[in-house]
Amino acid sequence: MEVPLHDVDVLVPKNLTEALRILSERRDIRVLAGGTDLLVQLRSGAVSKSDLIDISRLQELRYIRHSDGYIAIGALTTYSDIAGSDIVRRYAPLLAEAAETVGSVQIMNKGTIGGNVINASPAADSLPPLYVLDAKLKLVSVDGTRAVGISDFYRGYKKLEIRPNELLAEVRLRAMGAGEVGHFFKHGLRQGDAISVVNGAVVLDLDGDKVVNAAIALGAVAPTVVRAPEAERVLKGKRLSEDVMWEASREVLKSISPIDDVRGSAAYRRELSVNYLYMTLWRLAREVGAL
């Protein structure tokens, strides 16, 4: 049975200051950004019914800026904004790849990066790129501002390091340097518009074909997105040979704990994780001329 939402009140703040005041006064309220996940969850009863504060029109939280080796993205920046941004395509191309494959054009036009972070699905497509680019989340409230690292923000399945009066205002990530290459990968059950069965992101800092540093993150294979330190360790200091890439890919199994669900079994996810990591490393190796 669909939950009727006719009695849900929607407050529309005129600016960020008003939004923060409402959040400090109303603890029983949910923040509505693009609505592509929240409205579905409210109607299905997956989250309990509550009044909403619609922040989707706060243009002051919709921007992409580059300075001092960082990219700052306002929480209300849409996937379409991100996919079409020259800054993101140049300094965090894997985030643009994730934004392009997150869903249909319709979803890209409304869904926001802040919504994706707060919705906290372990399969969220923007998260693996944020993990490998050491994202920091700017949380604001009437009490002030604080920054939380992305891996500290997720304490468990949908358990977030955020207070009821705080709003996610900005996602700040490291701009990739000249020697760095990376890709996002995703396995969905439909090409055009699907939730990931497994997704992930890889960033390699290369000196020729030698890996100086590696960052690997996978989604939909644990209660939160996870980094794969064992696989990263195999790659560090090595040349990108087929043997090294296979060894690193198999090591990813030590970092993941997938479950069986409607989109795939745990065993399928383990195999996908190894194979997609290998395919992504192989693709990067080919692109830099190491293979």
Partner: peptide, 18 residues
Amino acid sequence: TVLLDGEPVHACLTVMTQ
């Protein structure tokens, strides 16, 4: 699908305040 300010969006996921 309808156009909101010229961009395709889902009318089913767009509430009136938007």
